[in-house]
């Protein structure tokens, strides 16, 4: 089943400082981040994180800088050791692993893509792409065909013998993605992978990632501070603030029912018509008597529907999935869903 839990994070705490165990007690008793820093000189990294990462899906962890998102992703392959809590991969506790087993896990189970690319500057693009296999002991001749294949897949055909500094930022990150793909690991960790790129290239890279994901069905954990990017990529969205999970779930759901002023502030600037999809705002009843203006797919976004309607607010559309009618959407409902805060929608619902 596609909804298997790949990675499960339970009650994860991270506190930075000389005696994190002592500080942990205070945190568990409810001390907040600022007080902990003032009174005990410890920095609260993460507080009581519980996230399930589903197999074959893109889980996006979003938050502003300092929210602990990069700290969180580094716990998954234990680049950072937690203060307390549990991390399970395929039901096995990652924290129990010995050094050799952990290395095995990093080599075969998880690959990582970095914000600053982190390519080896003295190696060619080909050697960089094959780094994971090289670490496992393959020579260039062994990994060449694999590396060339994935480099071509990310659009870097013919660049194999260049050095990273000869490539643009976007191309360097393509090498970073190829490197992660060549390792053939089921889990990919992407730490602000596209944040250092300019907007157009970033959008290209997002498309590339979605396209690859359509083919490969990897379990991807993606870190970003950009809500647009988060909404575009995520199957499951986790919003972090000051080291705590504020809300997590289906991104459409979060957009329609934000449960925190922090998130409301975040989503105010979003182009809702482009992000919201028909399935999240439709009525789940199909009335056969109504004269429908046409059929919509449930994953169409509202912008498509708006252009289909030609601006006519009286139209009602039928929503179909695999040729079967699953609901309806009136243009009235659609317009209401476009009002940009969480609160008014709740009032209309009440």
């Amino acid at each position: 089943m596609a909804d298997d839990i790949k990675i499960s994070i339970k009650n994860l705490y991270k506190i930075f400082g000389p005696t994190p165990d002592v500080a942990l007690e205070h945190v568990k008793q409810g001390m907040n981040k600022a007080d902990l820093l003032d009174q005990h000189n410890h920095v609260l990294g993460l507080r009581d994180i519980n996230v399930d990462i589903l197999d074959g899906k893109i889980t996006v962890i979003m938050g502003l800088s300092g929210s602990g998102k990069s700290t969180l992703i580094r716990h998954l392959n234990r680049l950072i050791e937690p203060t307390a809590g549990e991390i399970q991969l395929n039901g096995e506790d990652v924290l129990e692993l010995k050094e050799g087993q952990l290395r095995q896990l990093r080599r075969e189970q998880m690959s990582m893509v970095f914000q600053k690319f982190a390519l080896l500057p003295h190696k060619t693009v080909l050697e960089n792409a094959g780094m994971a296999l090289n670490i496992r002991g393959s020579s260039v001749a062994d990994f060449e065909s694999e590396a060339v294949k994935w480099l071509a897949r990310v659009g870097l055909e013919g660049n194999e013998n260049q050095f990273p500094h000869q490539l643009s930022g976007g191309m360097q990150q393509r090498v970073g993605i190829a490197r992660a793909l060549v390792s053939n690991s089921p889990v990919m960790l992407m730490d602000e992978a596209f944040s250092a790129l300019d907007p157009l290239i970033r959008s290209d890279m997002q498309d590339l990632l979605l396209e690859l994901q359509g083919e490969l069905q990897k379990t991807i954990v993606f870190i970003t501070h950009d809500l647009d990017e988060a909404l575009k990529l995520s199957d499951h969205l986790v919003i972090l603030k000051d080291g705590e999970v504020v809300q997590q779930g289906d991104p459409q759901d979060i957009l329609l029912n934000p449960n925190d002023p922090y998130i409301v502030a975040f989503i105010n600037d979003i182009n809702r018509a482009r992000v919201l999809r028909v399935r999240s705002v439709m009525n789940r009843t199909v009335d056969n008597d109504v004269d429908y203006a046409g059929d919509l797919l449930e994953n169409d976004n509202l912008e498509t529907v708006l252009s289909r309607s030609g601006g006519d607010l009286d139209k009602v559309f039928r929503v179909v999935r695999n040729g079967e009618a699953v609901g309806s959407l009136s243009m009235k409902e659609l317009t209401l869903a476009l009002v940009p805060t969480g609160e008014p929608t709740e009032e209309t619902a009440a």
């Binding site: 392959n77 290395r103 990093r106 080896l120 500057p121 003295h122 780094m131 994971a132 670490i135």
Partner: peptide, 26 residues
């Protein structure tokens, strides 16, 4: 570069591999 070292760790290099493949060349 700390980022490159982190990448080496994340891809499971042994300390020895890290020394000879990353640290000394850089």
């Amino acid at each position: 570069d700390k980022d490159v070292i982190e990448a080496a760790d994340a891809f499971g290099m042994t300390p020895r591999q890290k020394l000879f493949k990353v640290q000394i060349p850089l």
